[in-house]
Design a protein around this nucleic acid. Structure first.
Lengths: 121, 121
DNA sequence: CAGGATCCGTTCCGATACTG
DNA sequence: CAGTATCGGAACGGATCCTG
């Protein structure tokens, strides 16, 4: 393993991964888009409690990073579609592993947290 | 795929994963610990620019979540060792996939960012 | 419909200095 | 050696209201 000493460098892969996954909503949106093409309001409804501002913000960030493709149809009312790019789909596979880990072990983490809270007395 | 509608629930696996991976330093520390047992100062040196405060903070969080084990040896000078738990090692495998993705595709992301910046005119 | 603008609270983070 | 204390700034996320 390398020394992680180049963590200052925004080019460092770990940094890139963090810049993407560190965002609270990224994973959710990638999963929401895993099933295909979706409109803004579909995503908003699907992720329920997300505010439009944050959804827009996050989608734009993903677009900038080349993970999501945004298509504007010049019609009234406006219609905008989002889909994963090939790059986005490649990330989906990797974070699916994380998702699987979370589903398998979330309870253990929660138990550990509870134990830590109790031991705090 | 489920509707991600329960994102409010801190028990939701996605939330748990985010709570852990969303932290800027978690991944780095997990990787730093992948090679075995390490002392505080080894970790600090290894991750270079991290401040002791933040290193402590993050390690404590990982300990609370049951991912890292902390052993204090009652000697002078103090000696404290950190190692991954079984749970931590299971996470390591999953995020290794993310790491691999980052190493394989970081350049594409950076290119996309550059293109977005140029197109901004 | 798909957002942009604004404001504001919280949380995170880093630098510096100090201690058992 | 392995932290803790304190402070201040920056980034993030949320609520509300507004618009082409």
């Amino acid at each position: 393993m390398d020394t992680v000493r180049d963590v200052l460098d925004p080019t460092c892969p770990s940094q890139v991964a963090l810049g993407i996954l560190g965002n609270k909503w990224t994973m959710l949106i990638i999963f929401a888009l895993s099933s295909g093409v979706h409109r803004f309001s579909e995503l908003r409804d699907r992720i329920a409690i997300i505010t439009p501002k944050v959804l827009t913000q996050t989608l734009r960030a993903l677009e900038r990073d080349g993970l999501v493709d945004r298509t504007v149809h010049p019609v009234v009312p406006p219609k905008v579609e989002y889909r994963l790019t090939d790059l986005g789909r490649s990330l989906l596979e990797s974070i699916t592993a994380v998702r699987a880990w979370a589903e398998a072990h979330a309870d253990e983490v929660l138990e550990a947290r509870d134990r830590a809270e109790l031991a705090q007395d």
